[in-house]
Amino acid sequence: MAADGRSGRRAVGLSPQRIIEASLELLESDGPDKFTFRALGARLGADPTAVYRHFRDKDDLLLAIADELLARTLESFEPAADWRETLRVLCLRMRKVYLAHPHTAVLATVRTTRRPAEMRAVELILSALTQAGFPPDRAVHYYRALVDFALSWSCMAATYAALDAGARSGDESAWGREYALAPAQRYPHLAAAAPYLPEVDEEENFALALDLMLEAIAARAGKFRAEEAGERTPAS
């Protein structure tokens, strides 16, 4: 076993995957602001410079971490017979993984990893949209719309989950407290809806929004297929 760098500590079994897993642990325990190679080296029991043998810099490592979340999303995933179910399950799985790692998700959801897990996810989504009836030039737009929607919602939920407990409690209780006291003369619709606002479940609401998105894509696909069929039908 070779001693590592200036400290003489031994980098036993240091691999890209081990570094990524330790990074995830560090991000979730200490937050992004304290994510440094020095802190990572301490967690790994290795000199921080050892990380550079596997990753060019911090950004290279962050892209690998982002791809790891996508890899976990795709674990044991198989496309469904219905393209809508394929996309629905993918988005729900992705959200679940991101919410399990909220501090990491805040960094990961805005990045393009250019790595195998992301490419497999893109391939799966484009395949589903092709099954829906879109050619490549149209599929890419619906791919971006769907993924940006799912990532944005997941990032918002992850950012909220990363808040301290006091801030979350105050925000959550506001629906049944401040909003319940909103004057009906000034906010008649809000006052009428106030009893129901605390009942909105975040996971159910994401599923609702996702279904609305998929229904809209399906409607656009049907319209596109009808237009294509009309263009191929000879004029009488």
Rank of each mutant, 00 (worst) to 15 (best):
R93P: 05
R93T: 08
R93Y: 04
R95C: 00
R95N: 05
K96F: 02
K96Y: 01
K96E: 14
V97F: 01
V97L: 04
V97N: 00
Y98V: 00
L99V: 07
L99D: 00
L99W: 00
H101Q: 08
H101P: 01
H101M: 02
H103I: 00
H103R: 14
T104W: 00
T104C: 07
A105D: 03
A105S: 15
A105N: 02
A105P: 00
A108G: 03
T109L: 10
V110N: 04
V110Y: 01
V110A: 12
V110F: 00
V110H: 02
R111L: 13
R111I: 07
T112F: 02
T113K: 00
R114M: 08
R114A: 09
R115Y: 04
R115F: 03
A117Y: 09
A117K: 07
E118R: 01
M119F: 07
M119V: 05
R120D: 03
R120C: 03
A121K: 09
A121Y: 14
A121I: 00
V122H: 12
L124W: 06
L124Y: 07
I125T: 14
I125H: 08
I125S: 13
I125D: 12
L126I: 05
L126E: 15
L126R: 09
A128S: 13
A128M: 09
A128R: 02
L129C: 10
L129W: 08
L129F: 08
L129S: 04
L129Y: 07
T130I: 00
T130D: 15
T130F: 07
T130W: 11
T130M: 06
T130S: 15
Q131H: 10
A132W: 11
A132T: 10
G133K: 11
F134S: 05
F134K: 02
F134I: 06
P135F: 10
P136V: 07
P136F: 12
D137T: 14
D137K: 14
R138Y: 08
A139Q: 11
V140P: 01
V140D: 07
V140L: 15
H141F: 14
H141W: 13
Y142K: 04
Y142W: 15
Y143H: 15
Y143M: 13
R144K: 15
R144H: 14
A145C: 06
A145D: 12
L146C: 05
L146K: 02
V147I: 14
D148K: 06
D148A: 12
D148H: 09
D148Q: 13
F149N: 06
A150Y: 09
A150L: 07
L151M: 11
L151N: 15
W153C: 11
W153M: 11
W153D: 10
S154D: 03
S154H: 11
S154F: 08
S154E: 06
C155W: 10
C155T: 13
C155Y: 08
A157W: 06
A158F: 03
A158H: 01
A158C: 04
A158Y: 03
T159H: 08
T159N: 10
T159W: 06
Y160K: 12
Y160C: 03
Y160P: 01
A162R: 13
A162F: 09
L163F: 13
L163A: 13
D164P: 01
D164Q: 09
A165C: 06
A165F: 04
A167K: 14
A167N: 08
A167R: 14
